[in-house]
């Protein structure tokens, strides 16, 4: 398919006459220099590469709050006065933090997928008389497939993405649970005692006094987790989601004449681009985290909170 690059003449009316060049990419073998490069960088494959940056950012944007919620639940469970819930919370943080990520991503995801299909199979195909495990094969009826094999590719991709978010959330939630558990204990006990002296119930003192004050203690640990999460996205390919590292490797590998745009091994340049992306993302995160630290320190009995109080006075 020919790809045309049209300069945005509407935005630069003064240059309309000069710049309205039309680049045609119909026969890449005849192209040279910048023209070749412009066509090369706009192939469908490169578009998929650019889109995968969006996939990674979307994954981060969705996973971070979900993992935080898992962590909060885990920390609350671990503090519970109800023993089985406490065991569950402590077991969750201990086990998931102990299992290597890569083993978790390979084993847990296939097990989760098969568990979902097994349950759907029991509901949808009660008359099925063949065994589900046949040697190494896992066989469920067609209607139990998740997603259905007739579904368009985007459904499969969305399903893979959802599984990825869920798995990331479980792993990072376990770490976040431990961070939040520690932060909850770091809030000075006098604060809780005072709250109870004012007649607040345990629930009220938890939500109104403990939770608002714990974030500043949790922030260093949570920001570490965020930085690690940013760099953990190549694990996505284990789940069949094509992330930026997959595409950089695929596009950068040397291409023979069978491709429209043959070139030698360019992986170095693609990985340099990724390096820049990750550094920019890290810098932006630092700026945002610094602001959050300032915001959360307001009125706190910490060094920064005290400094803010004096500056304002």
């Amino acid at each position: 398919m020919p790809i045309q690059i049209l300069h945005d003449t509407a935005r630069h009316p003064r240059h309309a006459g000069r710049d309205a060049t039309i680049l045609s990419c119909t026969d890449p073998k005849t192209l040279e220099g910048l023209h070749w490069l412009a066509c090369y960088l706009t192939t469908g494959k490169h578009m998929a590469f650019y889109a995968s940056f969006g996939t990674v950012l979307l994954l981060l944007a969705v996973t971070a709050p979900v993992a935080l919620a898992f962590g909060f639940g885990g920390a609350m469970a671990a503090r519970s006065h109800f023993a089985p819930l406490r065991w569950f919370g402590q077991g969750y943080t201990a086990i998931v933090r102990g299992v290597p990520d890569i083993a978790f991503f390979l084993f847990f995801v296939i097990a989760l997928d098969q568990a979902i299909e097994y349950l759907r199979h029991k509901v949808r195909c009660p008359d099925w008389d063949q065994p589900i495990r046949q040697g190494s094969d896992f066989v469920v009826c067609q209607a139990a497939k998740m997603p259905l094999s007739t579904s368009p590719q985007w459904v499969h991709e969305t399903y893979g993405f959802a599984i990825a978010v869920f798995t990331f959330a479980i792993v990072f939630g376990a770490f976040a649970a431990n961070v939040l558990y520690g932060a909850m204990r770091a809030v000075p006990h006098g604060q809780i005692e005072t709250a109870e002296a004012y007649g607040m119930s345990q629930r009220q003192s938890f939500w109104r006094v403990l939770v608002p004050q714990m974030w500043i203690f949790a922030l260093p640990g949570l920001s570490n987790l965020w930085m690690i999460l940013i760099k953990a996205t190549p694990l996505l390919f284990l789940l069949g989601v094509e992330d930026i590292v997959y595409w950089a490797r695929e596009l950068g590998g040397s291409k023979t004449d069978i491709f429209e745009y043959p070139h030698p091994d360019w992986r170095l340049y693609y990985f340099l681009a990724l390096l820049v992306f990750y550094l920019v993302l890290t810098r932006l995160s630092e700026i945002v985290l610094k602001r959050i630290t300032h915001r959360l320190s307001r009125g706190q009995a910490t060094a920064l909170g005290e400094a803010q109080r004096k500056a304002a006075a």
């Binding site: 067609q142 209607a143 094999s149 007739t150 590998g253 069978i258 491709f259 429209e260």
Partner: peptide, 25 residues
């Protein structure tokens, strides 16, 4: 309908047998 749909798995990294072309297919 699903009795008819067959999903074919390939590697997409072994030219000339199978590869991802410049259109991403």
């Amino acid at each position: 309908a699903s009795a008819q749909t067959v999903r074919l798995g390939t590697e997409g990294a072994y030219p000339p047998y199978n590869f991802i072309n410049d259109a991403g297919e």
